[in-house]
Every structure is written in C-alpha cells, then in structure tokens.
Amino acid sequence: MLPVVDPPQRDAYATPKIDAAVAARWLVAFLRDECIGRRGIKNAVIGLSGGVDSAVTAYLCARALGPQNVHLIRMPYRLSSPASLEDAQLVIDALGAAGHTVDISAAVDGYLQYEPDADPRRRGNVLARTRMLVLFDQSVKFAALPIGTGNKTERLLGYFTWHADDTPPINPLGDLLKTQVWELARYLGVPTPIIEKAPSADLEANQTDEGDLGIRYPRADAILSSMLLGYRHEQLVARGFDAAEVTLVRGRVDGTHWKRHLPTTAMLTDTAINEFYLRPVDY
C-alpha cells in the first residue's frame, strides 16, 4: 500500500488569513503618507468607542504619528455602557495618547426631545451622526485629521450609518475584515478584553453586532471572502457554505451598494464631475 498524501481539510469557513506584521507596516506607511506627506497634518483625531476597530486605529496612528499627536475622543451618550468608557481608557493609558471625553447626551437629547417617537434605529443614527459632528469639530481644534475606523465587513454588510461612521477622509481598516482586525489587534498588543468582548455599536442596551446581523463574524467573513472573488450562490454552497447564511450575507451586500458610494448626482452636462471631469483623489 502506498502512503496517501491528502490536501489540508477543506474548511469553507476558515478564517481569511493575513500577515499582521506586514499589514501593520503597510498601514503605518499609509497613515504617514496621507496625513503628513499628502496633507501636511501631523495630528489625528479618532473617535474611541471602546471597541476593537477604533482601538486598532489608535494603535496604528500612534505608531505612524507618535502617541503625543493622537487625540482619542470618547463620546458617551447617557445610555451608553459604562464598560465602553472603561475599555477606551485602557487604550488611552496603554498608548499614552491624549484622551478627551465629550458627552453628547445634551446635543442628542436637544434634538430628540422633539422626536419622542423616534425608534431605536433613528436614535442610533442620530448618535452616530452627532459623534461625527463632534469629531470633525475636534479635528479643527487640534489641527488634526479625523481617521475612520470602519472595517470591511461592516462596510460590505452596510452595518453603519451613512455619512457618519464612513465620513473621515481616510480609513486604514476599510479593507480588513472583522476577523482580520482581531488578528491585527492581537499583533499590535491591543488589551485583550477589547479583543475578546462581543462587538457592539452600543447604540442600544445589550446590542451586539452579531445579534443585529444574524450571523457570526467569522462565518460572514469567510462567505464574503469567496463572494467578493465572484463565486455565485450555488458555487458557494457547493464549496460548503450554508445556503441560508449565503443568502443572508449576499442580501445585505446587494442591498447596500449605495452606502459605499457618494450621493448619486444627476448628470446634465458633458462636464459632470466624476463622470466627465475626472481627477484622482490625490491629484
């Protein structure tokens, strides 16, 4: 009998790999180029939620710009989890960056008092947009560039507030899936409680991302990785993915293409911006 050499067990749901050291080095170079090289801005402001995405962004910015040039803004609402504030403080302490706290309760409630019937979704969007308003104003105050923290998974699934979370002019994590952000966080030394806790937008009590999405991040990331290469539904199922999960993920992606674009502008002339009149973003 000849020995049999088999390929590694096929696992459709295997976590998409990254080399965290390479990714970190590349993202630090990106941040230096965008902030200092392209714009001549030495400082960054980051909305620090207590979650892993903003923590990783803070660690990368501290490496790229120096922790003394990184302003980490905590923006709690009166119903936010106290644990989020505490986790954010772990990052501020670990990095030695400047920490600031801006309570958005008065601003949010100042508007929502006129909208008592607003459902949780509307209230969540008001929180997110208020935080971005604060972040951009703080960026002027500190002569800093606002840095986005959204990851690829939430961008693809449309799990963000349009023109809020996605507003900053640069985004180091936007091409990293959530599971890859976790791996990068471990490499960078982000405090373990932040990596291991259930991801949450913290817009409502006991809210979790995975509860909202209806799928675990590792499973969504595995499906997205193959789906983005061009595999169709039946091809994904043939490769071992659960049909219902594929349907769920594809439905979210297909239903949110608009959220990953600028507003649709009616074209009326042959000099329409970004249609006829085309210039690169860094021109």
Partner: peptide, 17 residues
C-alpha cells in the same frame, strides 16, 4: 492545493472545482 514530498512513492489526492 497539495504537494507530496520529494523522495518516495505515494498517492497525492486533490479535489478541484
């Protein structure tokens, strides 16, 4: 997808889409 060692007889299995 799969590769055998250099130095002995064996059977290498692969499943391809």
């Amino acid at each position: 997808l799969v590769q055998a060692d250099a130095d002995d007889a064996c059977i290498v299995r692969a499943e391809i889409f």
